[in-house]
């Protein structure tokens, strides 16, 4: 009971404190770099799409608002044929970013996505893909992976030995 009275008093005293409200949109708030806002697809250091269409973001999405289809170029390098996010469903939870093994999908400090027409909230790959590497610089998935797919010679990636000679029987 007394604690309730104390609460009342403390809340009452808030009357004399400075307001914390920022008068958006006249004043913009500071958004930290890891703010979970509008989702983008980034590119790797070679300016290729980072997304390898592994479907993990779609699987992680709790509202199932990511849909894509994998395809590959003539070298077998996989990329999404289409990549669609329905932002009218997105809850900006960031699980897609957590799930992404290639740093391709990233959430950015931008939330100003209001639209008068819901259909405009459906973003395709062209709307999502940016020119840069986003938050994570220098990472290239295909340098770490075992597949070559035209990005490197077989065995030419980081921490890889050159391909073995299968014709030898020497120990």
């Amino acid at each position: 009971m007394l604690s309730n009275v104390r609460t009342l008093w403390m809340v009452f005293l808030k009357m004399f404190k400075k307001k914390v409200t920022i008068q958006y949109p006249e004043k913009k708030a500071y958004l930290p770099p890891r703010w979970r806002g509008r989702i983008i697809l980034s590119r790797d250091p070679d300016h290729n799409e980072r997304c390898v269409a592994c479907y993990l973001c779609a699987a992680a999405c709790p509202v199932d608002c990511i849909s894509l289809q994998a395809t590959e170029d003539e070298n077998g390098r996989r990329y999404p044929e289409f990549f669609r996010i329905n932002f009218s469903r997105c809850i900006f939870c960031g699980l897609c970013e957590d799930a992404c093994p290639t740093y391709a999908i990233q959430l950015t400090p931008d939330f100003e996505m209001g639209e008068y027409n819901r259909q405009n909230l459906v973003y395709e790959k062209e709307d999502l893909l940016i020119d840069g590497m986003g938050k994570y610089h220098g990472y290239s998935f295909y340098q770490q992976a075992g597949v070559a797919v035209g990005v490197k010679p077989k065995g030419g990636g980081e921490k890889e030995d050159p391909p073995v000679d299968v014709r030898t029987l020497l120990p």
């Binding site: 809340v11 009452f12 808030k14 009357m15 404190k17 400075k18 307001k19 914390v20 409200t21 008068q23």
Partner: peptide
């Protein structure tokens, strides 16, 4: 309510 919650 706003005043007591330090809002506008």
């Amino acid at each position: 309510l706003a005043v007591w919650q330090q809002r506008s």
